[in-house]
Structure formats: structure tokens, C-alpha cells
């Protein structure tokens, strides 16, 4: 082995050793000068290759190449190490407290009663029901008489009515006037509709009672529609609304526009029937009134009660929305307090 070969080998060892002490970008630069710069042994050796004997040149050339490759490989590794370290340092400096709150974008929400309405639309749409709307300011005829509630009938006591200064015009006390309107529009077709909308009753405004509230009514008219169909439809609705295992019960009630009439209760979805604050300890929640459309109403609607039959059901969605979200005051819905609405 030539002397120079040994020298070059030793230089590699020295270089790698020296590199071990390098930690900063500056000392790395110095190392580069020392081992790979102009005056480094590598470069010196390249420069003096011409002076070597012809037969020594390939040997020395190979050795110096090995040295250079060796040093450069070591350098590359070191550089990577230093870069990672310095990036780490930056990361540390940039580290956030991820528990600080995020910047809130402005977010709009659908009003809770509109949410409930949409859910009901969806459920009944799945069962083939269409949506029909009718006026909020109604004639006495549509609001009462056509619904089998003639003037001075005791059943008129069931609704505390807002009257307008125009004779025979009232604020509708229920969405039922839509029953006769839709029948008159569509007779003699089969009918499967829901009638949603705002209704108004003369009541004291308290946390539990409103003068304006939203009702959804359903009406089915056709040939051979029975009480059993009504029960099945309402059970399906209850299961879709309150869960697969929702239990319902029907008990007799009275509405002038249906006969037989019933009230449907659903087992309290909060306590499962054990009794709680929401169901006032009874285990049941009143959710809707229903019944077979009264022959008189069918007649007013243009359907022969000897041929056609139907059922109707109505529910107030304010109350069910109250229960669903444990809302303490029914007036929140129309006061539109932003602190209330923002929670939906």
C-alpha cells in the first residue's frame, strides 16, 4: 500500500470522527472547509494527481474517490440530522395550546319548530302523504260550521276563539278548516294529506300556553278507510318519532268533526313509562287527537259518507318540541331570543 493510500484512509477516519463533534450549521460549514474544501486533503490530492507516476494514478484516484464518497455520505447524514433537530426546535416554538377555543364562524340554524315540522313532513311523506296548507284567517264556516260545529253548539266551547271585526271571520283555532278545503278541491279523489300551520286561540300567555301555536293535522279519505287504518298509521308515526319500541294507547275523546274520536298517548320517551317530570308522573304523554271523519264533514267536503270514509288526526307541535328538548317555556318559540335559538 502506498503511503498516500494510508494517508487518505486515515483522513476518512479523522473526518468521520471530527464530524461527530459537529452540532451546529456553523461548525458543519467549518468541517466542510476542512475536509472537502479547496485546501482539504481530498481536493489537494485531486489537484496533485498530475504529478503522480502513471501507474500510481488509478490507485490513488480510486482511494481519493472512496474518501470523497465516504466523507460526503457522512456529511449528508449529518446535515439531515441537524436539519431535523433545528426543525424540531421550530416546532417546539410553534406549539399551540390546542385547548384554546376555535374561532367560531357565524352559523345559522333552523328554528326548532321548523325542525319538528320538517321531521313530520318526512315521516308522512314516506307514507305517501302530501302537504296542503290553508289560510290562517278563516271564515266561521270553515273553522266551525263545515266541521259539524254549528253556531251555539256546545262544542264551540272547546275553542277560545279570536274574532275579527269582520262578521264571520275568525283566526283559525285549528288546522281542521283545511280538511274541508282540501276535500272540496280534490273530491272525489282519494286524499292523503297533512295540514300544517299556525293556529291561534284566545288563551292566557304563560310558560305552558300560547295564543299562537303550530298544528299538524292529517286527513285520509277514500273507500274502506277504517279506525284500524288510523291506528296503524298513527302507530307508525309514533314509532318513527319516538323510537322503534314506542308504545301508544288510544282512549275515547270527542271532536265534533270525527266520530268515533280518540286521544292518542305515547309512553313517555324520557322515563319509558316509569313516571317522571316530563310526563308528570303518569308515564304517558298526550300527543294527538284523532278519529273517523264525521259524515257531516265528508258531506261538506263533497264526499258521500255512504261511499267514502276517512280519518283525521291533529297534534300541536309546540308542546311535543318542548318535551323533546326539555324547553321550560313555550313563549321562547316566538320571542326568538337568540340565546335560545342558538342552541339548535
Amino acid at each position: 500500500m502506498l503511503e498516500i493510500e494510508e494517508k487518505l484512509q486515515a483522513e476518512l477516519t479523522r473526518g468521520i470522527e471530527a464530524l461527530q463533534t459537529v452540532v451546529t450549521v456553523e461548525s458543519l460549514e467549518a468541517w466542510k472547509q476542512d475536509f472537502l474544501g479547496k485546501s482539504s486533503l481530498v481536493m489537494q490530492t485531486y489537484g496533485s494527481m498530475g504529478k503522480l507516476a502513471k501507474e500510481e494514478r488509478p490507485i490513488v484516484g480510486k482511494a481519493v474517490n472512496q474518501l470523497k464518497v465516504g466523507l460526503e455520505a457522512a456529511l449528508a447524514e449529518k446535515e439531515e440530522g441537524i436539519k431535523t433537530a433545528s426543525q424540531q426546535e421550530t416546532f417546539t416554538k410553534e406549539t399551540l395550546d390546542v385547548t384554546l377555543p376555535g374561532r367560531k364562524p357565524r352559523r345559522g340554524r333552523i328554528h326548532p319548530l321548523h325542525l319538528t315540522l320538517r321531521q313530520i313532513y318526512q315521516i308522512f311523506a314516506d307514507m305517501g302523504f302530501q302537504i296542503y296548507r290553508s289560510p290562517e284567517v278563516e271564515t266561521d264556516d270553515y273553522n266551525f260550521t263545515f266541521l259539524n260545529i254549528p253556531p251555539y253548539h256546545p262544542a264551540r266551547d272547546m275553542w277560545d276563539t279570536f274574532y275579527t271585526d269582520k262578521e264571520g271571520v275568525v283566526l283559525r283555532t285549528h288546522t281542521s278548516p283545511g280538511q274541508v278545503r282540501v276535500m272540496r278541491e280534490r273530491a272525489p279523489q282519494n286524499i292523503r294529506v297533512i295540514l300544517p300551520g299556525t293556529t291561534m286561540r284566545y288563551e292566557q300567555l304563560t310558560a305552558r300556553s300560547e295564543i299562537e301555536f303550530i298544528q299538524v293535522e292529517l286527513l285520509v279519505v277514500g273507500k274502506g278507510i277504517t279506525f284500524a287504518d288510523m291506528r296503524g298509521t298513527l302507530n307508525d308515526f309514533a314509532r318513527r318519532t319516538f323510537g322503534e319500541n314506542a308504545r301508544t294507547r288510544l282512549r275515547p275523546s270527542f271532536f265534533p268533526f270525527t266520530e268515533p274520536s280518540a286521544e292518542m298517548d305515547v309512553q313517555c320517551f324520557v322515563c319509558g313509562g316509569e313516571g317522571c317530570g316530563v310526563c308528570k308522573g303518569t308515564g304517558w304523554l298526550e300527543i294527538l287527537g284523532c278519529g273517523m271523519v264525521h259524515p257531516t264533514v265528508l258531506r261538506y267536503g263533497g264526499y258521500d259518507p255512504g261511499v267514502y270514509s276517512g280519518f283525521a288526526a291533529g297534534m300541536g307541535i309546540d308542546r311535543s318540541t318542548l318535551m323533546r328538548y326539555h324547553i321550560d317555556d313555550i313563549r321562547h318559540f316566538r320571542n326568538n331570543d337568540i340565546r335560545f335559538l342558538e342552541q339548535f
Partner: peptide, 12 residues
């Protein structure tokens, strides 16, 4: 009175 599902013809 047991419930049934509506089975009349759907309206237009």
C-alpha cells in the same frame, strides 16, 4: 282494535 297499515290506492 288492532292497527293496520293503509292499503287503499294512493291518491294522484
Amino acid at each position: 282494535i288492532a292497527g293496520k297499515r293503509l292499503s287503499d290506492e294512493l291518491p294522484p
